[in-house]
Computed example of a mutant assay.
Amino acid sequence: MTEMEDAEDRSPFGRLTRESAVVALLCALPFFLFFAYLGDPAKGRAAAGSVGMIVLVVWMSWDLKKHMWFWTTIATLVLLHLPLVLFIPWTNTNYPGVVLLPFGLLDLAIMYGCIKLAERIMKRSDGISSAN
């Protein structure tokens, strides 16, 4: 079995590796630093957490990258995260990662569910249009 076949056979959560965690961290870090520079590290933690989870859900669903509906769904999820990060008054309480992890995982699961729902809807609409 080749490496490509092995990657396709794994479950989406099996695709989460140390490499994916490092990529998500590197993508999220500039958002934290930006808000910390502006004097709001709490908002920076929220932004970094959101960006990290979005990066991980894209990583998990990378096999759908050729579909326009996938990128539309990702853009919608990003737009839904913006008001959560920008308009909620985040406290400067320094929570340890163990406390924040369940919320991040819930966010990840909801976004992954949205992508799978969109995939199911698009497959069904493709089946209807090809039957006509």
Score class of each variant (00 low, 15 high):
M1Y: 13
M1P: 15
T2C: 14
E3Y: 07
M4Q: 15
M4C: 11
E5R: 14
E5N: 14
D6T: 15
A7G: 09
A7P: 09
E8I: 12
D9E: 13
D9A: 11
R10Y: 08
R10Q: 13
R10M: 09
R10T: 15
P12R: 12
P12I: 13
F13C: 09
F13M: 07
R15N: 03
L16F: 00
L16E: 00
R18H: 06
E19N: 08
A21P: 04
A21L: 15
V22M: 14
A24S: 11
A24P: 05
L26I: 07
L26A: 12
C27N: 08
A28H: 01
P30V: 01
F32Q: 01
F34C: 14
F35S: 05
A36H: 09
L38S: 03
P41N: 01
P41F: 02
P41R: 03
A42K: 07
K43V: 05
G44Y: 00
R45S: 02
A46N: 06
A47I: 00
A47N: 03
S50K: 08
S50N: 11
S50V: 05
G52C: 07
G52L: 03
M53W: 04
V55I: 07
V55E: 07
L56C: 07
V57E: 00
V58N: 01
M60A: 00
M60G: 10
M60E: 05
W62I: 05
D63T: 14
D63R: 15
D63G: 13
K65T: 04
K65N: 01
K65E: 02
K66F: 03
H67V: 02
M68H: 05
W69R: 05
W69F: 10
F70I: 00
F70Q: 00
T73D: 06
T73A: 14
I74D: 08
L77S: 11
L77H: 02
V78Q: 04
L79T: 11
L80T: 13
H81L: 15
L84W: 10
V85P: 12
F87K: 07
F87I: 10
F87P: 06
F87C: 12
I88T: 13
P89R: 14
P89W: 03
P89Q: 11
W90C: 15
T91A: 11
T91I: 08
N94E: 13
G97F: 15
V99H: 10
V99N: 07
P102S: 08
P102C: 07
A109C: 12
M111V: 05
M111D: 10
Y112N: 14
Y112Q: 15
G113M: 06
G113R: 09
C114H: 06
I115W: 10
L117R: 04
E119W: 02
E119C: 05
R120N: 01
R120G: 00
R120I: 03
M122C: 14
M122V: 08
R124S: 08
S125C: 04
D126A: 01
G127C: 04
I128S: 02
S129P: 09
S130W: 11
N132I: 08
N132Y: 13
